[in-house]
C-alpha cells in the first residue's frame, strides 16, 4: 500500500529531554494506521513533532513534499487536520466560535452538523462549560468539517463514557473512509475496529510495525503494551 506520510529519523525534545528518538514509519494512503505504546512512550509527542508543535529534526514527507521545516499552520493548510489529546477546545469561546475558527474550506460542515446535532443546539454555549464528550465532539468537528488529506487523531476516546466511545468510533470510521488517518489510541477495541496497520513505540522508538489484527492477537501486545491481548479485545 502506498504511503501518504513518510517519517524518517524523526527526533524531538522537550526542555532538553529527548522524547522522540529517531522514529521511522509510514502512514498508509488509505484507512487507519494506529500508533500504539504504553503511557509516556512519546506517541503524542510524535504527532506534535510531525505538526511542528514540538521542535524536531528528521525527515517528514507528506504527499511528496518535505514538511519537517514548515511552520505548523502551513502544514495544516496543506490538508493535515489535528485532533489533540485532551480536546483543547477554546473554553472561553462559544461552540460556534470554535467551529468558525477552525473552518478552512468547510466542505463537510453540513455532514458534521448531522453527525453531531448536539453541537448545533449548543452553538451559543461556552465550550469550557461542555461535558468531556461534548468537547470531544467540538474537537472532532473542528477537524472533520474541512476537506483534509490526512487526519492526526490523538486519544479520541480517552476519559469518555462507553456510549460516547461508540459515537466517536463511528464518526472516525466514516471519516477514515475518505481520509487516511494516524490514530493514537489506548482502547484496543477501538484500534481493532478501525486500524489496519499498527506502529508500536517504546522508549521513544519504533519497536514493531505490521498488520493490526495480527499484532493484537499476538503475545507482542503484552510485551509492548503491558496488556493481555485477548482479554482487552474481549
Amino acid at each position: 500500500m502506498s504511503a501518504v506520510l513518510e517519517v524518517r529519523g524523526l527526533s524531538a525534545r522537550i526542555a532538553g529531554q529527548q522524547v522522540v528518538e529517531d522514529v521511522a514509519f509510514d502512514v498508509a494512503a488509505q484507512g487507519v494506521t494506529a500508533l500504539l505504546g504504553r503511557n509516556g512512550v512519546g506517541k503524542s509527542s510524535t504527532i506534535k513533532a510531525l505538526l511542528g508543535i514540538l521542535e524536531r529534526t528528521g525527515e517528514v514527507v507528506f504527499d511528496g513534499t518535505r514538511i519537517d521545516r514548515m511552520l505548523t499552520h502551513r502544514i495544516v493548510q496543506r490538508g493535515i487536520a489535528y485532533v489533540p489529546e485532551d480536546r483543547e477546545v477554546f473554553g472561553s469561546l462559544t461552540v460556534a466560535e470554535n467551529l468558525r475558527l477552525a473552518e478552512r474550506d468547510g466542505t463537510h460542515r453540513d455532514a458534521v452538523a448531522r453527525l453531531f446535532p448536539e453541537l448545533d443546539e449548543r452553538a451559543a454555549q461556552q465550550a469550557g462549560t461542555l461535558s468531556g464528550g461534548q468537547q470531544q465532539m467540538v474537537s472532532l468537528a473542528r477537524a472533520l468539517m474541512n476537506d483534509n488529506r490526512l487526519l492526526l487523531v490523538d486519544e479520541p476516546t480517552k476519559g469518555l463514557a462507553p456510549r460516547i466511545v461508540g459515537d466517536v468510533t463511528r464518526a472516525l470510521r466514516d471519516a477514515a473512509e475518505r481520509t487516511p488517518m494516524l490514530l493514537v489510541e489506548q482502547n484496543l477495541q477501538v484500534v481493532r475496529d478501525l486500524a489496519h496497520t499498527v506502529v508500536v513505540l517504546s522508549g521513544g522508538r519504533v519497536v514493531h510495525t505490521g498488520p493490526a489484527a495480527e499484532f493484537l492477537d499476538s503475545p507482542l501486545v503484552h510485551r509492548h503494551l503491558g496488556v493481555a491481548g485477548a482479554e482487552e479485545a474481549a
Partner: peptide, 21 residues
C-alpha cells in the same frame, strides 16, 4: 478578534487549526 481571543487562551492550538497566528 476571534483569533486573538483564541490565541490568548491557547496559541499552539490556533496554529494547529491552520491559522497564521
Amino acid at each position: 478578534g476571534l483569533v486573538i481571543r483564541a490565541g490568548v487562551e491557547n496559541r499552539t492550538m490556533v496554529t494547529a487549526l491552520g491559522i497564521d497566528v
